[in-house]
Each structure stands twice: as C-alpha cells, then as structure tokens.
Write a protein that binds this DNA or RNA. Structure first.
Lengths: 211, 211
DNA sequence: CATTATAGAGAACAAACGTTCTTGATTCAA
DNA sequence: TTGAATCAAGAACGTTTGTTCTCTATAATG
C-alpha cells in the first residue's frame, strides 16, 4: 500500500470512463483521484502512459488505448494479489472484438422461450446474429416465420427444409416448423451474451475468509 | 446543398472519431471542417447538440451520444420487418456497457467441463465474474478450491457451506465440494459470453429466398 | 545518522479553450 | 427593395488546460 499503485488510479478512471465515456482533464482527474495538486495528477497520468493505458490524442488530450479496455482472463490462481494479473502476461480480451467480426452485419436479438435450452440458449439471453440468407444444415438460424422472428436449428428431410427446436424435455411443445411456402432466413447464430439477474446484493454468506 | 447540411459535418466528425476515438476541441474541429472562425464551429456544434448527436460531458467537453453511432447498421434494413426488431435498437446496444458495470472489478473466466450445464453454462463459454468475497446461498460463485478456480453454486446445510454443481444428468460425476478448512470465494457470476463455433461457412442450404 | 527515493503540495505560465458579441456577405420571400 | 434568415468571419473575454519548476513531508536504505 505504500507503493504508488497505479492500478488503483487506473481502476477509478476505468469506472469513470464507463460512466462518462470520456477521459477527463487533469483538473477533473485530480478530483476523481482525490489528489490536491494537478502536478501530481499529471505525474500519475505520465505513469499510466508509460504503462500503455493512456496516450495523447492529436491536440494533447488524453485518450484510452486498446489496453485500457482489455480485461483479464484468468486460467489458474495467480500467486498472491489479483493486481498481479497485469504483470503475469495474462490473456487479454476485448469483448466486442472477441464476439463480433463484422459489426455492420451483426445484430443482437433477445431470446424468448426455452425452445433452444439444450444448446444453452436461455430466455432473456441476447443472441448475436450475423446476417446472411444462406446456412448449413444443423446450424442455428434466425428465421422469419409468419412475420415473426424465431431462433431454431435448420434441418432437412425428404419433404424439404424445416426448423427444429432443441428442448429434449419439452420436445412435444416445440414441433418442427415447416414453412408454408418459403423459409426466410435472416441470419445465423454466432454467439451469445447473457446478463445474469443477480439477486439484490444481500451478503448472506461470508464463508471463510478472502484474499 | 445551399442549406447548412449538418450531416456533412457530422460525417466528417464520425470518420474522425473512428480514427482517433476522441471528439476534438473547437479549434481542431475548425480545421477538420475547414471553417475559419471558431465561433462558427461552435454554432455547428450547437446544432449537432440540438439534434442529439453530441452532448457535453462533465467539464464541458464534448462527447458522442448513442445517436452518434447510429449509422453503422442502417436502420432502413429493418423497415418492413416484424416489430420485435425495434424493441432492441440493435446497433445502439454496446456489449461492454451492457454486461460490465464495474470494469476494474470484473474478469472473464473460461468455463471447463459441463458441471453447470443446467444453468446454460457450457464448456468454452466465458463467464463474467465480478470480484467480491461475499455471496448469497444459491448464487453462482467462482471459488478457489485446491488452488484452482471452480465455478459452482454456493450452498449450505447443517455441516456448513459447500459447492454444488448443476448437472442433473451426470449428477453423480459432480458430487458436492466441501472445503477442508475454509471456502475461498473469488467473485460471483454476473454474466456470460459465448462464441459459437460456426462450422466453416459452406453454404449448403439456401432455402427459399431472402430479403 | 545521513541519504535517497517516493508521495504529494503550491505557484506560475503560455497556450488553448469555450463562448459571446459584432459585422459583413448572400439568399430568398414579401 | 426591403427585410429577414442564413452562412461566415473576426475580435475579444475570462477560464481552463497541460506542463514545469520548486518545495516539503515521509519512508526506506545504507
């Protein structure tokens, strides 16, 4: 704690950036960090630049680098403090880049119902759909049936193409969908994001200690 | 073309923002827009604020609004489609913002095994973990057992706290984990991202037409 | 003990900043 | 042809900015 811990400052700044979507000026940074002297704030900023979290945009203002957004991915227990995650060369990952390859052809679609539960696609999840009207058998596709979107597996038999659910338990609730005329495919499933509905944080349990 | 076309200015600014990831100052905007008077630049900015493309961040600096990013996936694509699509405003949702509230306390962790499959957490998924050593019974937690991370449900009985898997089918493969001394909780599950392993794109099927 | 980093504050400054007010063209409808 | 908008530039303002330089405490080291 004696040592100037840049990551404490970085953390506050990252949280601020998420809130405000801007890197503030030295003066405002001083307030954010509870530093009384703008000169000292400047010093800390300099350190963050050396570490590669910030850089100067044309005009001298600060802007976040790619590294600023990167998030640690843990594989095994890091010896000691969690902050060391940065030192230990962990895998770094940016969610948007990881999930979306073609931003202009990608949309998010909210999942309703549990017809795809066997593939781990739950109600309330957001599926990531890449546009394209061609798909392979067995692929999960977002199709348009009766003027409504539906997420199903593309299948085919003697009678032609149809859509299958993936819910073993309640299979009879989701019979195959056979298009009356044509099957309109909007895009195909390339990923998923889920926000867990965390119960309002009542810290019931505090088993053992911590780190 | 006679009329002051804000969108010409907006376009240039959008391109600049993609390049530099920052909204420049009035002076630099003047250069970008080939406007000689900073006052006039200020006027245009005012117009863009009224239209909802820009706003003032705390401190007076400019920042882009959500509408600023609107253009990427043309909304015209949606015209004529089922109404569900409009609920989400796909291109306006930024994944990072949606999933992560406290970036500095959040990590991603790759899921191994199928012990949590009943909660739709599959092998290869990345769970989003928010740090904190307190948790409620029934919450999904990332705990440290035998110097390895494990993702399980926190439970409790007469004997004390323990960890449960969630895999009905192969329940006997995942017996409850009871800590020898103390149960160390690293953080709790707040979300998930998944990248579907799309088979190399062989466009087997082209059922019906498209849009 | 003396010394040397480290953590922090204060003052000071030129440049850049956001803003306002004034003035001059050009366009276009009454 | 008068008069109001619109488009544009200039000058001027007080404030904030990034930066530098100097000066202290405190802690660690030898």
């Amino acid at each position: 704690m004696q040592q100037l811990d840049i990551f404490t400052y970085l953390g506050k700044l990252q949280d601020y950036y998420v809130r405000e979507k801007i890197i503030p000026s030295t003066t405002q940074l001083s307030a954010l960090w509870n530093v009384k002297a703008r000169s000292w704030t400047h010093q800390i900023v300099q350190r963050l630049k050396e570490e590669g979290f910030l850089e100067n945009a044309p005009g001298g203002r600060l802007r976040p680098t790619l590294r600023f957004f990167e998030r640690t991915v843990g594989h095994r227990v890091w010896a000691g403090l969690p902050q060391q995650a940065f030192d230990v060369q962990p895998e770094l990952l940016r969610i948007d880049d990881y999930l979306i390859e073609k931003p202009s052809q990608t949309i998010l679609f909210p999942v309703k119902g549990d017809s795809m539960i066997d593939l781990g696609i739950l109600e309330g999840d957001m599926v990531i759909i890449e546009r394209g009207n061609t798909a392979s058998i067995g692929q999960v596709v977002l199709a348009i049936v009766d003027n409504e979107f539906t997420l199903k597996v593309l299948a085919r038999d003697q009678e032609g193409y149809y859509l299958e659910a993936r819910n073993e338990k309640r299979g009879r609730d989701y019979p195959p969908i056979r298009p009356e005329q044509k099957l309109e495919i909007y895009g195909f499933y390339v990923g998923l994001i889920r926000k867990a509905h965390v119960a309002p944080h009542r810290p019931h349990a505090r088993p053992g200690s911590s780190l």
